[in-house]
């Protein structure tokens, strides 16, 4: 049996992973039409933007984790 500690996970990883929840769990924050972007109402492009932001934050979490030995 391997007797050792798990690789330490930096706190920042958890912060990065929790970001999308703050951005999305409060619809009042984004349920509006203006401002439109490329004619698309804010409600839609805001949520689309979070797809990229969440991929980015999860990607950063991954990089951080792998730098700390995962």
């Amino acid at each position: 049996m391997l007797a050792r500690k798990p690789p330490q996970r930096p706190k920042l990883v958890y912060v990065l992973l929790v970001l999308p929840f703050f951005g999305l769990l409060w619809p009042a924050l984004y349920s509006m039409d203006a401002p439109r972007l490329w004619q698309i109402p804010f409600f839609y492009w805001y949520q689309f933007a979070w797809i990229f932001l969440s991929a980015l934050s999860t990607g950063c979490a991954y990089l951080l984790d792998s730098r700390h030995g995962r």
Binding site: L17, L24, L25, Q47, W50, T58
Partner: peptide
């Protein structure tokens, strides 16, 4: 718009998967 919840759903799912 109410039908669009699939989007935040399939965004928030991945941090959960990750952990």
């Amino acid at each position: 718009a109410a039908g669009f919840f699939a989007l935040p759903y399939t965004i928030m799912v991945y941090p959960i998967v990750y952990l």
